[in-house]
Computed example of a mutant assay.
Amino acid sequence: MFIISLTYKVELEEVDKHLDAHIAYLKDAYANGNFIASGRKVPRTGGIIFSKVKNRDQLETILKKDPFNQAGIAKYDITEFIPGMVADGFETLKEV
């Protein structure tokens, strides 16, 4: 599993210009099974995405298509981890 932490490199007014395209990108990534959760950071300095794609190369290819990435709006920090324990109802997050 991967945690992607986006940090905005520009003011929010510039981020907002690309927000509709970013949301469309996220919806497509969910439809393709690439992302399992996402949302804004509080305060709004970026966002977080959870992904269960097979490997980092695949993830980096997917992230290159993000309009935020293409416009140079956000920095992407990727952390890979293996969930060893999960709460009831989240068993699908564990690797088999």
Rank of each mutant, 00 (worst) to 15 (best):
L26V: 09
A71D: 04
P67C: 01
L19T: 06
Q70Y: 02
G46K: 03
Q58L: 06
L12M: 10
L93W: 06
G39D: 05
D28T: 14
P67W: 01
V15C: 05
T92I: 15
G39P: 04
E80G: 00
K64Q: 12
K65D: 15
E13D: 15
L63H: 01
N69Y: 06
I4A: 00
K9E: 06
I82R: 11
P67M: 00
F90P: 13
T79F: 12
Y30M: 02
V15R: 02
I48H: 13
F2P: 03
N32Q: 14
Q58W: 03
E13V: 13
D77W: 05
Y25C: 02
E95D: 11
A29I: 09
Y30V: 04
V10Y: 04
T45P: 09
Q70P: 01
A29H: 03
K94T: 10
D28L: 09
I49N: 01
V42W: 15
S51E: 03
L59T: 02
A71L: 05
A21W: 00
T79I: 15
D57R: 05
G39E: 06
L6W: 04
G89D: 07
G84T: 15
V15G: 00
I3N: 02
S5H: 12
L93F: 14
N32L: 14
L93G: 10
A24K: 10
E60K: 01
S38Y: 03
N34F: 11
A87G: 07
N55Y: 05
D66V: 01
F81D: 07
N32W: 12
E95F: 08
G89S: 14
P67T: 00
E60I: 02
G47F: 01
A71Q: 06
S5V: 12
I49E: 00
A87D: 15
T61M: 07
G46Y: 07
S38H: 00
N34W: 12
E13N: 13
E91D: 13
G89N: 10
H18G: 08
P83H: 13
H18E: 10
